[in-house]
Structures are given as C-alpha cells and as structure tokens.
Computed example of a mutant assay.
Amino acid sequence: MHLLMNGKSLTFLHLIVLPLLLANVGCQKEISAENGLLPGGGGGGPVDSSAVFSLVPSGANCSDAVVDGSYVAGQAVGMDEELIVTVNVTKTGEWNYSTSLANGFAFAGFGSFTQTGIHLISLMAVGTPVSAGITRFNLNIDGATCFIRVQVQQ
C-alpha cells in the first residue's frame, strides 16, 4: 500500500484545494438528490481524473477509513486534519477527489497512481466546522458508496 501525500505536499494541497472548494460553495443550491449529492450529506466524487479506482467498503461503512486531527466548531481545520481511505486502483493515472461540503468543511485530495492494486489516499480537510456534533460524509467512488463520521467538538 502507498500513502500518496507527504508533509511537503500538504501546504500546496491546502493552497490549491481551499480556494477551489470555497469557489464551489456558491453552487451548493444546485446540488440535488437527482445526482446523488445531497446538501450537508456528503457525496462528492472523482473530478477530471484519468485514473480508475473504487472504494473498498465494508457494507455502508468505510471500515478502514481513518479520520485524523481535531475538529472544533468555529476553528478552521489545519494541516493535521485528514481522512485516509483505501481504494482499489484498476487504471493508473492522475486522480482528484473531494467530498461535498458538510457543516462548513470538506475533504479533498489529488495525486497520481503509478501502479494498480490497493492503495491508501489522503484527503485533507478544508474549511471551518460550524457546529459541534457528528458530521457525516458520504464517499462515492466508482459506484461504491460508504460513509464516515467526524466528531466536531464544541
């Protein structure tokens, strides 16, 4: 397995992904149940990628997903907040994935797969959690769907 992000690319990722995510916030009204992306419920999907990969879920849960960092209502997420999830790569190439915005924050990442098989991808958190409690993110990659829960502290 390969972790596709390293300490040097995290700063660059935040600088690239945060403006893109914030630019899309104005489009939230266009999200609908018809395309499977419900406001506040997660969703997202690969964007403009040449790689083909899918989730490796266990039922409705992303059983191996690891949410790292501390999420506090009213505090912008930092470089330590991320989601690591296992994917099965069937075609190598560039990848780009983001969740939908939920409770003021989302997860996003990009990279390149050079080998097929099982890999770990790292999605960095961007934004500011609005309220304390459990925030649910749906991950939908290549037809496989699962969800994760992120505890946001007061």
Rank of each mutant, 00 (worst) to 15 (best):
Y97P: 00
N6R: 06
V130D: 01
K8T: 03
W95V: 02
Q153V: 11
A106N: 06
F12K: 11
G78V: 05
S70L: 02
Q154C: 02
V52S: 12
V66S: 00
V150H: 11
S63F: 07
L22P: 04
L83W: 04
L13I: 09
A108Q: 11
A144T: 13
Y71L: 03
M1F: 13
C27Y: 11
V150S: 10
F105G: 03
L18P: 01
D142I: 03
L101V: 08
V77Q: 03
V67M: 00
E82S: 15
S70M: 01
A132T: 08
S63V: 02
A76F: 01
G26T: 10
D64N: 04
S100Y: 07
V126K: 00
L3H: 08
F53W: 07
V89K: 08
L22K: 15
I31C: 04
G44W: 04
N96H: 06
Y97M: 01
Q154Y: 04
Q151W: 13
A108W: 10
Q75D: 12
L83I: 11
K91M: 10
F110D: 04
T92S: 08
E30C: 02
L13R: 05
V66Q: 03
N35G: 06
F110K: 05
G26Y: 13
A106I: 02
S49M: 09
P129F: 09
C146L: 08
M1L: 06
S98M: 11
S50I: 07
E30L: 05
S50N: 14
T99H: 03
Q28M: 12
Q153D: 11
L55R: 10
S50F: 08
G43I: 05
P46T: 07
T86D: 13
P39G: 02
I84P: 01
L15N: 09
E34P: 00
E81N: 15
L3P: 02
